[in-house]
Write a protein that binds this DNA or RNA. Structure first.
Lengths: 201, 201, 201, 201
DNA sequence: AATGAATGAGATTTCATTCAT
DNA sequence: GATGAATGAAATCTCATTCAT
């Protein structure tokens, strides 16, 4: 009898819950969380967007924080293993996909909310990390490891710092106000992999 | 060397501003902005921390957003040109300094707030970018350009993507929950500069 | 004579409204509006007088202006058709009733608030006009028209200016600091109807 | 050693006050009082409009109420004895002038403010009555008395109720939303004087 | 005298949460 | 389970007034 999140209410007996409402609530929450941030998002707005009453939300999630955490837990970062190609292209596709996620639907603001709320509600960053950050890193790491195993990268390559550098460069560009383009993605890959790494294979 | 008009003439009419209050207000604002985020920061708390009344704050900054923007505008990212050393060490010192800024005083949460508020109050990110992000990037870029000019980096090196990769890696590590250490800084530098770049000079 | 659908079906879902609160809110608003004027009336005072929380008021009326307008809309000027008598007496009763409304419960101050707020919140005067001014005028006009039709007033009499003169005289007296008495009401009627109009019928 | 208003500060010794400022303050006060009402008028706005500082206002008038009362005390209702003509025309000119005063510069709202504030600040209505209401009534009464003395009105005519009816009709029309026109002024006079009073002389 | 600075005391409005059907 | 009603606890911003030159 364990609970994944102790503020998440469980329904066990009695009338079953209207099934579509759960998803509507979480979708609305995620959208508003990104658009307005955690603090500015109101339960009234979530209820309106989801087409339910506020009390219904509280029936499922005891607090606003629990609701937000659950919504982040519902994130599904498509692992999107990019179709094979040479390594540079493969990595650039990864970065383009990441940049797209950042710019569509206020993805960068969503990251910002999780970071901003960390001192107050660390569960947000925890869920975001587990469901969005780490899966994406894993996909990118797998690509790098495959490349290393087939000799396209030096055998001594440690993939984690490379993952951080590649993905971090995209968000650092956003923070600096530098627009992301397919060309900039390739430039990032080139800068990180270094000129000595041959572009083929 | 005397005043052209009248030395006894006060610079401005009326009661002079209580000195130090301006700084106290901005300092308190910045601290609370980082600790609690823009939305959760209250003017009451700022006033209490700064030792002034709320009305005094409003006298100088018409709105909460203006206050926050001014506080961010007061950020002074010390350019900290690290003392000379071999390039890897020089860059690692840069990254350590950046990591220190991120972890002390909730620097990462401060970035998060600016990102989270961007859809609603873009001035925050704008000021943060100008006064914190770009100065740090400039310092790091200067280091890279000096290295390129003395031959420690290939002549064709484009510094901007390298800056993004190096600084971005630090924040990406934080986002992924990877602790920063002096060793991890060196690993990041090694990964980004590549093995082909000699570690000396 | 049964319900078409289902008698057990509640009229509306959710918790039913606490009965009487609506009336308590509007009554308190009207009283405070008259006593203190729109600008000086506070929602706190209304809530206290009505025995509800401020938020409950805001639940029903989005803004203070909407609340005040609704309260004025609830005014019910009893048409008070005075019992038959000779015309002079009938009109004097009208004026006495109007004077009573002006002096009891700060009626004159209520008019003043509506006039004072007109540049800023014209809805107040609009509602007051529709629910208090025009009904009273209509009642008085009806009296005059009946008198004209039975020959107690010349056939060519235009009732509207007479209505304005009769009612206006009462408020003009108040503005001038002249106390209203039954005698002064008769004097007003006599002055307006003129000596040539016989006092009987 | 009497003071006309005990909140009005008197300057007796020391540096004389800048003379033009007094008038600027009172003019600005009167204009804002009419435009916004007493409660909504802010001393900041008065100070800005008058080109002085708030503290300067408080130097002369201890409270906001004293300032408003003083401004109303400065009202000068031009007695405007209308040029001779037949009585109906003479009175209609009076009414037109009054209506003009009501509609220009928010005169009706100014009356409203004085009435609305009467429970809280009776000095406003008192000053307004003395400096605006009574002078106008006196001018109109004089006209009526002259007419009575020359036989254009019955010898037994009591002028006060007529004054109230004539002036009151104009404000009652405003309250009812009836526009004032020169024609409506004549209709009012005709209604009040009655058909039996000949229109000539 | 005149003025800019400073402030205490609110006022309106918002919102997460609980209640009563 | 679902919902509308109700509310306590703020939060931002305003303003008349006083203070220190």
């Amino acid at each position: 009898m364990r609970s994944t999140d102790n503020d998440r209410c469980r329904a066990t007996a009695g009338r079953p819950r209207c099934p579509g409402k759960q998803a509507a609530i979480l979708d609305a929450t995620l959208a508003l969380l990104a658009q307005q941030g955690f603090a500015r998002m109101t339960l009234d707005a979530v209820a309106r967007a989801a087409g339910v009453s506020k009390a219904t939300i509280h029936l499922r999630y005891r607090t606003k924080a629990a609701l937000a955490a659950a919504a982040l837990g519902g994130l599904r970062t498509c692992a999107t293993p990019p179709p094979a190609a040479d390594l540079h292209t493969e990595l650039a596709i990864h970065l383009d996909d990441f940049a797209h996620a950042l710019h569509s639907n206020h993805g960068m603001a969503l990251i910002g909310t999780c970071l901003a709320e960390e001192p107050h509600t660390p569960a947000l960053l925890r869920h975001f990390r587990e469901h969005a950050v780490l899966p994406r890193r894993a996909a990118l790491r797998a690509t790098l490891e495959r490349a290393r195993d087939r000799g396209a990268l030096p055998a001594c390559t440690d993939p984690e710092p490379l993952v951080s550098a590649l993905l971090g460069a995209v968000s650092a560009d956003h923070l600096a106000g530098r627009a992301h383009t397919p060309d900039s993605a390739r430039a990032t890959v080139r800068a990180v992999l270094g000129l000595c790494v041959s572009d083929d294979r």
